[in-house]
Amino acid sequence: MSIYDCISMEKKMGMIEVVLNAETIANIQKKSRLFSATSPFKKGSIFAWIKEHNQSEEQLQKAIQEFTYSCAGYCVATYVLGVADRHSDNIMIKKNGQLFHIDFGHILGHFKEKFGFCRERVPFVLTHDFVYVINKGATGRDATEFSTFQKLCEDAFLILRKHGYLILSLFSMMISTGLPELSSEKDLNYLKDTLVLNLSDEMALEHFRSKFSDALENSWTTSLNWATHNFSKNNK
Rank of each mutant, 00 (worst) to 15 (best):
L34N: 06
T139L: 13
E23T: 13
L179Q: 09
E57G: 06
G44F: 02
T24S: 15
H163K: 11
S184V: 07
I102A: 06
F157H: 02
M15W: 13
G137E: 11
G82Y: 05
S32P: 09
F111N: 15
L99E: 09
L170H: 08
C75G: 01
E145Q: 03
T78G: 06
M174T: 04
R33P: 07
N21A: 13
K11V: 08
D142H: 14
S223W: 04
A143T: 11
N54L: 01
M9Y: 06
F35V: 05
V80K: 10
K162E: 15
H106Y: 12
S232K: 04
F157K: 03
D142C: 06
Y4T: 02
Q59G: 07
F146E: 09
S70C: 09
F231K: 04
S2R: 14
M203F: 03
L166C: 07
L197Y: 01
S213D: 15
D142S: 14
K112S: 12
N54R: 03
A48K: 10
G44V: 08
A26C: 05
E10P: 00
V76N: 01
S8K: 13
A143N: 14
I167T: 04
H53K: 06
L205N: 10
Q59A: 14
N135W: 00
R121W: 01
T68G: 11
F208W: 10
F100V: 10
S36G: 15
L160P: 05
E10S: 15
L179K: 09
E181N: 07
I46F: 05
F212E: 00
V76P: 00
K112E: 13
D142Q: 14
D103A: 01
H163E: 08
M13E: 10
S200T: 15
Y165S: 09
P123I: 00
L166V: 14
T221W: 02
F146W: 09
L224M: 12
L205C: 10
E113P: 03
S2M: 15
I25N: 08
A72C: 02
S32L: 08
E202M: 03
A84T: 02
